[in-house]
C-alpha cells in the first residue's frame, strides 16, 4: 500500500539521487569546465532533479524558501532529521 509517508520518502530518495548526480558533475565541472560529456550529464540530471522537486513540492510543500507562497508552509514538519512518527506542532 502506498501511504503518504512512503510516497514522501520515495520522492525524497528520487530527488536525492538526481541531486547527488548533479553535485558530482558540478564538482567535476569546477575542475574540467570544458568537458562536453560532463555538461550533458549535468543538464540531464538537473532536469530530472527539477521535475522530481516540482512533484514533491506540489504534494508535500517547499524544499527551499518558496518562490510564490499563498500560504506559509515552510516551517511545517517533518524536518529531515526527524522520523516519520515525530511530526511536531
Amino acid at each position: 500500500m502506498i501511504t503518504r509517508d512512503n510516497q514522501r520518502s520515495r520522492l525524497i530518495k528520487e530527488i536525492s539521487t538526481y541531486a547527488f548526480a548533479v553535485y558530482e558533475a558540478l564538482l567535476y565541472l569546477d575542475a574540467y569546465p570544458d568537458s562536453k560529456e560532463a555538461l550533458n550529464f549535468y543538464n540531464k540530471y538537473k532536469r530530472l532533479e527539477s521535475k522530481a522537486r516540482a512533484e514533491y513540492e506540489s504534494k508535500f510543500g517547499p524544499l527551499t524558501a518558496p518562490a510564490d507562497a499563498q500560504e506559509w508552509k515552510w516551517t511545517n514538519g517533518p524536518w529531515p532529521w526527524q522520523l516519520d512518527e515525530e511530526v511536531n506542532s
Binding site: A65, T75, N76, G77, W79, V87, N88, S89
Partner: peptide
C-alpha cells in the same frame, strides 16, 4: 540547537 528543538516553527527560525 535546532535539531533537538521540538517546535517546528522554532526549528524554521533557527534554520533560517
Amino acid at each position: 540547537q535546532r535539531i533537538a528543538m521540538p517546535y517546528s516553527k522554532i526549528v524554521g527560525i533557527l534554520t533560517d
